[in-house]
Write a protein that binds this DNA or RNA. Structure first.
Lengths: 353, 353
DNA sequence: TCCCAAATCTGAAACGTTACAGGTAGGCTA
DNA sequence: TAGCCTACCTGTAACGTTTCAGATTTGGGA
C-alpha cells in the first residue's frame, strides 16, 4: 500500500519536473528506468542489483526480475566515470614476434575466459622500433585498463617493475628473475629443451645445435639454454652454437644461414628449434645444403599450432598450447584484480608430445 | 592587463567556493585543471582544445600550450558518457577459422592505423557453436563500439543487414551480394583461383581440384569457383570436385581425405588450395598416397604468412597480404564513421606472386 | 549619445553510475 | 510512554565531458 502510494507520488513528482519519463522508450534502459518501474529510487536499484545487504530480499528479487525482463545492462561509461573501473583487460603484444598462430591463440584463449565476465579485451601491439614501455605507460597514465597481459618477458623487465610500483594488476607470459612476485604463466622451456635434446641423443646424435628465443633479452632463452646444456652434458654430446640467428630472424635469413652452417665443417647432426615457422625455414636450409632430415640430421621443434604435425619430412614435435596459456593468463589477471596473492597465480605448463 | 585581472578575480571566486583547486595534484589533469591554470571556464577550454570558431586565437594557443605541457588527455569515460562516442573499433572474429596468421596480421594491420588515432581496438571472437549475430547484437545494444570490422562475409549476410538498418558503421573483409552498399576490403579470390588454375594448366595439368573456402556459406567461395571454372573451361581441362573438405576441415581430416582421393581412380594432377596450413596437410596426404609433388601432381596455394615460401617440396604460392587488408579495413571504418559514402570505401587487392 | 552586432567567454545541466549522509517506520527495551 | 535500534530506503553530489542558453565586452554606425 505504502509502496503504491509512494510510487504514485513519485510519478507525479517526476512528471511535473522538467523531463517526463516515458516508459516504453526506444532508448537503452538505465537505473532510472528500473527505478521508475519499481517505484524506487535509483540508489536502491543500484544496490539491489549488486545484492547489497541493506536492501530487502523482496525488493531485490523484484528489481532483479525487472532488470532481467527489460534487458538492463549497466552503462560502462557511467560506471567507469564514477568508479574508475574500466572492465577492460589489455593485451600488449610485440607485433614482430609472430610464432605461427601465437597471437591468435593467445587472443582466443583470453577471450574464452573474459566472455563469461563483464570484461572486454583490447589489443595493443607495439612495433619493435618502439619502446616496449610506451604502451604500458599509456595504459597506466590514461587508466585505460584494469589489468594487463603481456608477453616477451625479460629477466629484468622494466614493465614488471613499473606496473608493480604503480600497483596495476598484470600477468606475464613468461617469468622474470628480479625477485618480484607477480602472476605469470609460462611454458616450461627448460623441460622442452631438455626433452628435445634427449630425443636427439637417443637417436645417436652427437653434435647438436639450438635455435633459441631472441637472444638473452627474453627470459625463456635462458630456460632453453639451461635445459639444452643439461641434456648435452649428461649425454656427453657437443653443443654447436649459432648465436647469430634466433626466432626473430627473418625466415629467409634463417634458411640461408642454415644452408651455410649445414654446408660447413663442423655441422650439427641434430637441431632443436623453438618455433614452428623457423623449423620450416630450417628444413629448407638443410635440404638446400643437400642433406636429408632423418639421415644426416634430425630436427625437433616446438609448435603452437598443429601444422608441423603434417609436415614432411617428419619433425619431432612438442606442443605448446598457447590457447591454454591465454586462458591461464586471463584467469590470473582477473584474480589478481580481485586481490588474490600473486604467488597463487603462477603456473607452468609442460611440453606435450 | 585585463586578462591578468580577470584571472585573479576568478581564482578568488573559485577559492572561496566549496572546493579548493590544488594545482600540483598527483591526479590526472582534467579540463578543470587547465581551466584553473589558464584562468578560464571549462567550457572555453573544452572548445579551445577542439579549435571551435568562437574562441579567440590567442586563447586557443594558450590553452593548447598548457594542455600539451601538462600532458592532458581527455577522459574517455567522460566523453563517452556525454557524447555516446566510444572511440572503440571492434574486430569480430570467428575463433575457428585461423588460416595461418590471419588473425594476427589482421589485428596488426588494424592497429597500425588506429595507433595514430584516439581509437582503441577490442577483439571479440565468437565460437562456431554460437550465432555469429550474437557479438554484433551485443555491440549494438550496449553501444560498445563506434565501428565494427568483421570477416567471413556471406553473400546474404545477416550482420550486414542488421548493422545497416541500425546505422552502425562497419567494414567487412569480403563482399556481399545483397544490393547493400557497404565498406569492404576483399582479396580478389576470383583472380587468384583463375591464375592458380592457369599456372597448373600451363604446366600441362588437365585434372584439377580445388580446396575452397567454407562451402558456399562464405562469399569468397563463390569467387574462387568462378575464377576456377573460367580457367578450367578456357583450358579445356577437367575439374575434380571434392565437396566434402574445405578450409575449415581439420588438418588431419584433410590429410586423410587427400590420401584417399590421390589413391583413387580419377585423381587430380593439379590442386588449387586457398589456405597455407591446408596446403601442408595436402602435401602430407599426397605423399602418403605415394605420389610426388612436381611429378605426379602440382600444387598452388594462397598464403597469408610467408611460411610456405620455404616449404619443400616447392609449392606455387600467391600471397594474400592480410596485414594490408587490416589497414584498409581500419581506414574504411574510420572514414565511414566520418560519414564518407560507403561506395568510396570499397577496395580489392590482387594476388601477388 | 545610444544601440546593435560580433567576438569571446560563461555557468548550469546533463549523460549513468555509485558513495555519502541521512531519513522513516516498526518493533523492542526499559 | 519514551527512547533506541534495526531494517530498509532516500536524495544529493560527484566523476569529466559537451551542449545550451546566455553574459560581457568591444567597436562601429546612426
Amino acid at each position: 500500500m505504502t509502496g503504491q502510494q509512494d510510487m504514485n507520488a513519485k510519478d507525479l513528482r517526476r512528471g511535473s519536473s522538467s523531463e517526463a519519463v516515458e516508459l516504453p522508450e526506444g532508448e537503452r534502459p538505465t537505473l532510472k528506468t528500473i527505478a521508475f518501474m519499481a517505484g524506487l529510487g535509483v540508489t536502491t536499484v543500484s544496490r539491489a542489483l549488486k545484492d547489497a545487504p541493506e536492501i530487502g530480499r523482496a525488493t531485490k528479487n523484484r528489481v532483479q526480475l525487472i532488470a532481467k525482463q527489460i534487458g538492463y545492462r549497466p552503462n560502462r561509461a557511467g560506471v567507469r566515470l564514477r568508479t574508475g573501473k574500466t572492465n577492460v583487460i589489455s593485451l600488449v603484444l610485440n607485433a614482430q614476434s609472430e610464432i605461427m598462430g601465437l597471437t591468435s591463440n593467445m587472443v582466443y584463449g583470453i577471450s574464452e575466459i573474459l566472455s563469461q565476465t563483464p570484461y572486454h579485451l583490447t589489443v595493443t601491439p607495439y612495433s619493435a622500433e618502439n619502446d616496449p614501455m610506451q604502451p604500458i605507460r599509456y595504459i597506466v597514465e590514461t587508466g585505460s585498463a584494469d589489468g594487463i597481459i603481456m608477453s616477451r618477458t625479460e629477466p629484468d623487465d622494466a614493465r614488471v617493475r613499473y606496473l608493480t610500483e604503480h600497483g596495476i594488476p598484470f600477468a606475464t607470459h613468461g617469468r622474470t628473475e628480479m625477485g618480484i612476485e607477480h602472476p605469470f604463466h609460462d611454458f616450461d622451456n627448460e623441460a622442452f629443451a631438455y626433452k628435445s635434446a634427449r630425443s636427439l641423443l637417443i637417436k645417436g646424435r652427437k653434435k647438436i645445435a639450438m635455435m633459441a628465443g631472441p637472444t638473452s633479452a627474453v627470459t625463456y632463452h635462458r630456460h632453453l639454454e639451461r635445459g639444452f646444456s643439461r641434456a648435452i652434458e649428461e649425454g656427453g654430446a657437443q653443443a654447436i652454437l649459432v648465436p647469430d640467428i634466433d626466432v626473430d630472424t627473418s625466415l629467409g635469413r634463417i634458411r640461408d644461414r642454415t644452408e651455410e652452417i649445414m654446408s660447413g665443417q663442423n655441422r650439427p647432426d641434430g637441431i632443436v628449434c623453438c618455433s614452428g615457422s623457423a623449423a620450416i625455414a630450417l628444413v629448407a636450409g638443410i635440404e638446400a645444403a643437400g642433406l636429408k632430415i632423418g639421415r644426416d640430421v634430425d630436427l625437433v621443434s616446438k609448435q603452437s599450432s598443429d601444422v608441423l604435425k603434417w609436415f614432411r619430412p617428419e619433425i619431432i614435435v612438442f606442443n605448446e598450447d598457447v590457447r591454454h596459456a591465454g586462458r591461464e593468463l586471463a584467469r590470473a589477471v582477473l584474480r589478481r584484480i580481485e586481490g588474490v596473492d600473486a604467488r597463487e597465480l603462477q603456473s607452468l605448463s609442460y611440453p606435450d608430445e
